[in-house]
């Protein structure tokens, strides 16, 4: 039984009268990739924010590597990497400087060889790392965001819609690196509304709707028609 890296216990979050997350129970183990699938407002981002301690749970608990996040968010974050839907960088700094800065925040020194290896795996354009980040495409920013998370050697990485809006080539680059990362033992929790990418990368897929985790499915056991059925049932409220 692999060690549990991320765990939600009856995790609940209420924003005013709105129940954003309702009694979530979830565990992501070492080397596992869990995708949370759902329309906007399903509670995916709230789950990730609770694990990061960006917001406090109304009840229940989020645990990172056994540490309760609400009790010691800084300690929890030390074990986490994070890739946002829109990775924000300092536009005036170069990619390398951004990387160095964020590594230093995590208390680490950048090993240039390791950095270059990660960038190569991500197919980050040659030489672009020395250019100002303000000139980067969305794909490059997402790749650099993942590189930052990877350089941290975190036990778990939380990815919030990391692939949305990316061209297929860039998305493929990221997905293949994510697979390798999981294979290396890192726990990944990815929120997405792209069911096909989820099937591609996940070891388990959680279907969420209105703050509830409706079911956990094994993507390997899913047929194309089942996928379509899930899509039609859960994703058609996207605009809601």
């Amino acid at each position: 039984m692999p060690a549990t890296r991320l765990e939600a216990r009856a995790l609940t979050k209420r924003f005013g009268g709105n129940l954003a997350l309702d009694n979530l129970d979830l565990a992501v183990g070492e080397g596992e990739t869990v995708c949370l699938l759902g329309a906007n407002g399903a509670g995916k981002t709230t789950t990730i924010n609770l694990f990061l301690g960006f917001t406090e749970p109304t009840s229940g608990a989020a645990l990172v590597d056994g540490t309760e996040v609400a009790r010691d968010p800084a300690a929890a974050r030390r074990s986490l990497g994070y890739v946002a839907e829109m990775v924000a960088l300092y536009p005036a700094l170069t990619g390398a400087e951004n990387l160095e800065f964020f590594a230093q925040l995590a208390g680490q020194k950048v090993d240039t060889a390791e950095r270059d290896a990660i960038l190569a795996r991500l197919r980050f354009p040659d030489g672009a790392i020395e250019r100002a980040a303000g000139s980067y495409s969305k794909g490059m920013r997402q790749k650099l965001g993942l590189a930052i998370a990877l350089m941290k050697h975190a036990k778990a990485i939380l990815l919030d819609e990391p692939l949305s809006g990316l061209d297929p080539a860039a998305a493929n680059d990221l997905v293949s690196v994510l697979r390798e990362t999981a294979a290396g033992g890192t726990a990944l929790l990815i929120s997405t509304h792209d069911i096909f990418r989820a099937k591609d990368v996940a070891t388990r897929i959680g279907i969420m709707r209105h703050g509830k985790l409706l079911e956990m499915i094994d993507p390997a056991a899913l047929s194309a028609s089942e996928l379509e059925a899930i899509y039609l049932t859960h994703m058609t409220e996207r605009a809601a």
Partner: peptide, 18 residues
């Protein structure tokens, strides 16, 4: 404003040192 705050927090634990 620019959205780098979450990444800073995720990386550093807390922004105090920064």
């Amino acid at each position: 404003d620019s959205g780098t705050a979450p990444l800073i927090m995720a990386q550093a634990g807390s922004p105090v040192a920064l």
